[in-house]
Design a protein around this nucleic acid. Structure first.
Lengths: 335, 335
DNA sequence: CTGTTAGCGCATTCAT
DNA sequence: ATGAATGCGCTAACAG
């Protein structure tokens, strides 16, 4: 309320007739305090509208009560939701998030991580990224670290992931069950575990019903709309017939949809189209897109919970999240 | 590099044969220091890989070198880009961003602002929000404040906005020039200045060519896809003919597109469709959406620059940003 | 249970 | 130009 509040524990100590230590104690609940003194302190804090100085707290305690969150490209669909999950979970705690954008540049990521460390974050959450694995392992040695959406072989119990292979398997299997045989797969950047695992799920589903995956039906994209469009155009040029396209994410499905539209190919009458991620716009594509839903927000929350556990010294167990098939009008039975 | 670095200015003072004060001086360039001593200090800092402790710095100086950024709903199209702009600009400075998500809840926003203040941010950037104006004015009195995407009458030179009316005018005028006369407008939440201004631009454009805006052709939406869809369905039920729809944002245009699709109405053959914002997916709608581009990232950068100026005590001048018409295949001449 | 005493790492007078 | 001395606001032994 008042404009210039420089209230310190000394003030409330005086007001409550106790020592600064006692004030600190009721503040941190670090040691039992007599009920009456406790009340007095609380009353004084309320009366004077006391706000602890975080810097002093951090300096004295060595804890910053902040955790660094590194994402790649603000505004990208799934990561934003993961971040929201982190945020929401953190709001339930005394920790505040510090954010940075790695932009998929290893150097930028490293710099951001350094900045976080300089700011003495108590923990670190990394979402995706291209940062070399050794650097990550080094970082993990220095501070509590959770990585989501990426598998670092040297840090098995620091990574939080979705079961991409199972998801891709299920969605491919779904198309097969609809009678499709010539199913295209537009992959993500295959250097990403996500993309590789989805490709693997796709292949396995085909193999399991005795279909040999055809190389002409697999095209590598880069997870972006543009690449979905170009991949589809290339596919059309190739001339090999197909009745369904499975894109490794919704973005590329949007691109594919546009390419088909421009060629006058109807969805799902002429070809069925499915994506992965279930980003919000999927439900509003024309026609609405069949896709796989990732529990992104849930993963964010879990990531936050996990770092907090690491900070407390307990080693969290990180589940493999499952996806959920969301069926919409972009697919139909193949005759 | 080393795992346990607790290097303080005392260490480097010893290493460089000078006093701690001198070290502090070369660190902050606050007072001239003899060249040789200066070199020695720099060398020592490099050798020991010294990192200043931000908490100690902040505690002693009273500056946090952090600025609070409050957005509404992580993952919403335009705001995310504005945030990216803020981030990028801040990366060029010693300031770090602190983020929070207001979720369009005044209480949440207030709480977030309080948290920022508790963290002693040196400045505040608010993106959108429903926080009552008095609260904002109060906040502006306590700390450097910039508000983007919102007009607070009591804080004219703290607000950063786009010229919504002009943008809506231009886009409506464009449809008129294509021969459209019965142009629908699906508005945003009219309590938002954005939405009200866009509606005003739409009306003015019609009036300027002698068309009396018809109430049946204006429907209030809420900026979300779903509302664009419902508004369009309602419109179709009303039965009043129209040849074009102007949605107050792209999201609602996506919803409108879906409603038209489900009714078998072709775009742009049967009706032309335009949006506002030029969010990335617009270019991949089928057909690609004609829309108005906001310089969102630029606005974010400017917002950051402006708070920094406020912090330095200079009052920034905040331009009214202009939009740019992006013409794509969702519109055609009306015959 | 509680008060006293030291720092935490740095910026900033104040002398020199 | 530089060093010594205070203090920022709080936590954490340390005694009682």
């Amino acid at each position: 309320m008042s404009l210039n509040e420089k209230i310190t524990i000394a003030d409330i100590a005086a007001h409550a007739q106790v020592s600064k230590s006692t004030v600190s104690r009721v503040l941190n609940e670090t040691t039992p305090v007599a009920a009456d003194k406790r009340e007095a302190v609380l009353a004084a804090m309320a009366a004077l509208n006391y706000k602890p100085n975080v810097f002093a707290q951090s300096l004295a305690s060595g804890q910053s009560l902040s955790i660094g969150v590194l994402t790649q490209n603000f505004g990208s669909p799934v990561y934003d939701v993961i971040m929201r999950g982190v945020l929401l979970r953190l709001e339930e705690t005394p920790y505040s998030p510090l954010f940075a954008d790695g932009r998929w540049h290893p150097e930028t990521e490293q710099k951001a991580i350094e900045t976080f460390l300089d700011r003495r974050v108590d923990g670190l959450i990394l979402i995706g990224g291209y940062c070399p694995e050794e650097a990550l392992e080094e970082t993990a040695r220095r501070t509590p670290l959770i990585i989501v959406g990426r598998e670092v072989s040297g840090l098995p119990n620091h990574c939080l992931n979705v079961d991409n292979e199972q998801g891709a398997y299920a969605i491919t299997r779904y198309l097969i069950d609809l009678g499709h045989r010539d199913i295209v797969h537009i992959t993500g950047i295959l250097a990403h575990e996500d993309a590789a695992q989805r490709l693997q799920g796709y292949r396995q589903a085909l193999l399991d019903v005795g279909i040999e995956p055809h190389p002409d039906l697999v095209i590598e994209g880069n997870f972006r709309r543009q690449s979905g469009m170009m991949a589809t155009e290339m596919l059309l040029l190739r001339g090999r017939p197909f009745s369904a396209i499975f894109c490794a994410n919704d973005q590329m499905a949007f691109g594919a949809r546009l390419a088909l539209y421009r060629r006058g190919i109807r969805v799902p009458d002429d070809v069925s189209l499915v994506g992965f991620d279930d980003q919000p716009d999927s439900a509003f594509m024309t026609p609405p897109l069949t896709t796989m839903r990732q529990p992104a927000e849930e993963m964010g929350r879990m990531a936050a919970t996990a770092v907090l556990q690491l900070i407390k010294g307990v080693s969290p167990d990180l589940p493999l999240f499952q996806t959920e098939l969301v069926i919409r009008e972009s697919v139909s039975r193949h005759h």
